[in-house]
């Protein structure tokens, strides 16, 4: 029993040591590697970027290289990717999870992502009116769903051109 526990501890500490070592070794280029994935499409795979601005539920975050590992839930909003050359790519994401992994890697799993110019402002406005009607519904489930919809749509409205 004791020995097993000891081994467990030993194993763990060696794992920790190894990750630190590999971290140092595997980041000769100090660039942030971004993977942005949708369920049905992959937008970025391990591409080196300068900075990524995330809409998190705790506020907006700018991620640069060598950021400490975090796990953040995304809220509907604008995701900005600034490439090495300084060009900015913008995507509207509806939600998802972003993780900074040890080893200077940022992985974002979003449910949907669209470029702002793909969004039609008029349709958004119509949908907002529609959702607002339902938000006053007596049925709690319908109202809750409409409120979520509103949150996404209002974020969309700010982004759409």
């Amino acid at each position: 029993m004791f020995r097993q526990a000891l081994r467990q501890v030993a194993k763990q500490s060696s794992v920790v040591r190894r990750t630190y070592a590999t971290e140092a070794a595997s980041t000769p280029s100090d660039a942030l590697k971004l993977s942005l994935a949708l369920p049905f499409q992959t937008l970025y795979t391990d591409s080196e970027v300068e900075q990524v601005n995330l809409p998190s539920i705790n506020g907006d975050l700018g991620i640069l290289a060598n950021h400490i590992p975090i796990v953040e839930q995304l809220r509907p909003g604008l995701l900005e990717i600034i490439s090495k050359g300084g060009e900015t790519e913008q995507y509207f994401v509806s939600g998802g999870i972003a993780m900074v992994q040890p080893g200077n890697k940022l992985t974002i799993s979003a449910i949907e992502a669209f470029k702002p110019d793909q969004i039609d402002l008029n349709t958004v406005k119509n949908l907002i009116v529609d959702a607002q009607k339902r938000a006053d519904s007596q049925d709690e489930v319908v109202a809750a769903e409409a409120n979520i919809e509103l949150e996404v749509l209002q974020a969309l409205q700010l982004v759409a051109k």
């Binding site: 467990q8 763990q12 369920p39 795979t45 992985t107």
Partner: peptide
Amino acid sequence: ASRVFNESEAEFNKNADPAKTEELKEE
């Protein structure tokens, strides 16, 4: 596409290793 989508999750599991929680708990 779905494999890539799942990758960040897999990497998190590799680093955080929640599978060990079960083992530790069981022990």
